[in-house]
Amino acid sequence: MAEAATIAQTRAAPARRHAGETAVAWLLAAPATLAYVAMILVPSLALVVLAFTDYELGAPGFRWVGLGNFTELMADRGFLRSVANTALYVLFVAPVSVALGLAIALLIEGGRRGRALFRALFFLPVVSLTVAMATAWSYILHPTIGPLNALLRAVGIDGANWLGDSGTVLLSLGLIGIWENAGFNLVLFLAGLTAIPRDLYAAAEMDGVKSAWDRFVTVTWPMLGPTTLFVVIITTVRAIRVFDTVATLTQGGPNKASEVILFTMYTEGFSFFRMGYSAAITLLFLVAVTVLMLVQNRLIDRRVHYG
């Protein structure tokens, strides 16, 4: 009997230890898990729920409206305008700031002096507060007292009302977006460039690769593949999320010419308090961003990781 009991005990021991380990694991993961659930999961679920209601901030209750918010959105010309504006903005800002970031990174990497200085200078827009910089931009772009138009006048060109004209406002915001993003991309590309083994350049030289262009095509560009994928995704997301320049500089105007998705969502939710409607926009936005990321990842990933 005693023997049997010991055997039973020794058998049970690993199971008990296992259970103990599990408990400790949960305990250790609890703060992060709770934070994730409280800060991300619950709000996201609430958002999904809200998107199917007509809830308004401060209202005592809400009604289920099914897909009502979405059908309304599809007919909302303001919303469709903001989708088109955002798309234009992304198609302008993302490619240009990726290309510009890469070009400046190559120049800095190829230069002998002042690397740290140039890196800091170009990274400055990333660390500076957009809202604060907006003041500077609204001054620079001011149609009458702005230095940009003064400069143009000096060479005999009539400047535009950059932020006040519906024809140029998106272009102006896009240029500011590029100014913000290129510095960020530059730093990422510089990191990617330093990770390229020097031996590959030496091998290319031995193989008769002579011109800077051939070197770029043979070694640099393919080896930057994973970095480029990351930069393209990050820049696209950052461009889609454009908000603070719009909110501070144009308020979506003039005449909704610079209305972008996040700004529409903000106005619907926080100016008109239509939380349900705003949630529906956010949900569409999240779905669109996720799909875009997945497609980009699938399309490019296989071509940049040479496994």
């Binding site: 083994p197 031996d199 091998a203 031995m206 193989d207 008769g208 393919p222 040479y306």
Partner: peptide, 30 residues
């Protein structure tokens, strides 16, 4: 003369193969 003009071939300790090219493309590059 620069290395590319010397008609010299080098084998590296790290092999320094181009990872995005097939063996065929690597050998063909010179």
């Amino acid at each position: 003369l620069r290395g590319a003009d010397r008609n010299v071939a080098m084998v590296f300790q790290s092999y320094a193969l181009y990872p995005h090219m097939t063996a065929r493309q690597n050998i063909a590059l010179p």
